[in-house]
């Protein structure tokens, strides 16, 4: 049971949250300008990082806000939590 710090509500139990997968997958502005391969990369392909991984989480049972988490997929340590549109303290998103 992870302890996740919601940027608004503070530290809460993992059971209040849902994970939405990799963060910073930006929807292309003009999908028609993309090749099939580029579009497939956006829709289907994820990095599956071993180590620090930027993820989107939503505080499902709490404030229902989406936010970003840098979580180490090996140690489960949460290195940073930041709101959409922000960059994590001390690093690149």
């Amino acid at each position: 049971m992870l302890l996740i710090t919601c940027p608004w509500c503070g530290p809460r139990a993992e059971s209040e949250f849902s994970c939405g997968g990799e963060a910073h997958i930006v929807r292309p502005k003009d999908p028609d300008a993309l090749s099939d391969a580029e579009w497939a990369d956006y829709v289907f392909y994820r990095t599956n990082t071993k180590g620090d991984h930027a993820e989107q989480w939503v505080h499902t049972y709490g404030c229902r806000r989406w936010f970003n988490v840098i979580r180490n997929t090996v140690t489960y340590e949460i290195k940073a939590v930041y709101k959409p549109g922000e960059t994590p303290a001390g690093g690149e998103a």
């Binding site: 930006v26 989107q56 499902t60």
Partner: peptide
């Protein structure tokens, strides 16, 4: 509901 909020909060704020 979660899907709609996700687009509004993260992609189209």
């Amino acid at each position: 509901m979660t899907w709609l909020e996700r687009w509004l909060q993260t992609e189209w704020p």
